[in-house]
Design a binder for these strands. Structure first.
Lengths: 253, 253
DNA sequence: AAGTGGTCTAGACCACCGG
DNA sequence: CGGTGGTCTAGACCACTTC
């Protein structure tokens, strides 16, 4: 007999819940609208709050919802496209890049970064913190690692304010000839400091973009940027962003 | 910047647990080794299983652990770098690309894809399913949408087997002049069919790579590829992958 | 059958935000 | 202050793999 095990798999409640909620979001809610609170929703669907939360978590992960402690759960706007790969071969800090220098310090980088930079495991490098804002919302936090050898012309330590120092280092970096760059994207969870900067809780899912800048045949700088995974769609490529995915009719707010 | 507001924030237990476990993984476990089961671990740390699981979930998200129902929790190998952006401007299905055609059908694409393809909301397009395997493990599942107008020379419906048909469509596609391509990366959760192909549970976190192929001034094809977020690091760029992140000393198995 | 992770419950308390 | 989401508990049962 054609034992196509069709209904052999009882769909988990939270999964079914997520489907129902997705459809409700598509048809009955507008962007920015606040949902009933979790206790009410759970009661309405006849499940425990934990189960309801499992569904909400997934929807937040997919960028459909936004939850804020003490406030409530709201319908999230479509993800913003954030250009990551358009500016082919440009140093960080060039003309009009999207980043704002926050701070600068001299510190020992993580082992993996040190390896890429070919510095000793205990060598210090310039460590610049930058932040990226789109539509008034912080979308990414970055740590830029620049060994002293990449900015030979930098005046000695008279250390102006952090951000000003950062700008000076970046300015100095432009003098090098950028030969190429590698990028990698992976999923991570926000460290405490990044989370704070991104206005999220620690552990929130982030897209980690690691960039290696190559000049004079070696790695001249390394950038580790963490983007909010819930609100961002990273765009690469020749022209503008792709407007795909996350289709359906959402009423404008 | 050392504004350490120290004891204002009681660290959540699962967060602290995650830290402890991370350190343990770095120093006391080798890749592939199986951890004690969740009930034992929870007891050992004096927390409820749900709390322990919250920590394990994060570690799995970060690619440090692999959990399989009925089997156990094992220490995951470092993420594999998967090249996504090296082959500049190449049609899918070209010479030696990493994908294996699985099936082909004619279907109405999702609304957002139809919009990009500039087909009507009810028009059917060739829909090719492909699968990508690295190191013997499935890492990605893809849906390729190709309107009939992009493969005018395709012989009429005599329909050989699915995979063979897929190859025929892809072969036909190569005749077009590829002018450019856009890519976007975002976080998603695996649909049931993708999850099955990726050997994961539905809802597992995935990196969704959407590619728009441009030829003759219009979108000739759209690809939506979902990569396992736990095991993959997507690499873009000129040369080989970046070997950064996820540093520390892991004993080889 | 035994042991694993996955789901679910019904509570409790806490941290945060707003009026 | 009241209401929200975030954390945590101690149990139960289920689905799956392995022997």
């Amino acid at each position: 007999m054609g034992t196509t095990q069709l209904e052999t798999v009882p769909e988990p409640k939270y999964w079914h819940l997520k489907t129902v909620l997705t459809e409700a979001l598509d048809s009955e809610f507008s962007v920015g609208e606040v949902l009933p609170n979790e206790r009410d929703l759970a009661a309405r669907f006849g499940v425990a709050r934990a189960t309801l939360r499992q569904a909400l978590e997934q929807l937040e992960l997919e960028g459909r919802l936004q939850r804020r402690r003490g406030v409530g759960t709201t319908v999230a706007p479509p993800r913003v496209g954030v250009a990551v790969g358009t500016e082919q071969h440009v140093w960080p800090g060039a003309v009009g890049d999207a980043w704002r220098p926050v701070d600068c310090a001299v510190a020992v980088p993580p082992a993996a970064v040190a390896e890429a930079l070919e510095t000793g495991p205990d060598d210090q490098v310039h460590t610049i913190r930058r932040s990226r804002v789109t539509h008034g919302q912080p979308v990414a936090a970055e740590l830029l690692y620049i060994p002293a050898s990449s900015v030979p012309g930098l005046p000695a330590i008279d250390a102006p304010s952090g951000a000003t120092l950062a700008r000076a280092v970046l300015r100095e970096l432009q003098h090098l000839d950028l030969e190429g760059q590698d990028r990698a994207v992976e999923l991570g969870s926000a460290r405490a400091d990044d989370a704070k900067e991104l206005d999220r809780l620690p552990g929130a899912p982030v897209l980690v973009v690691t960039t290696r800048y190559v000049a004079e045949g070696r790695t001249a700088a390394v950038s580790v940027a963490t983007y909010r995974a819930d609100t961002c769609r990273l765009t690469f490529g020749d022209s503008g962003g792709v407007e795909i995915h996350h289709d359906p009719e959402r009423r404008a707010s």
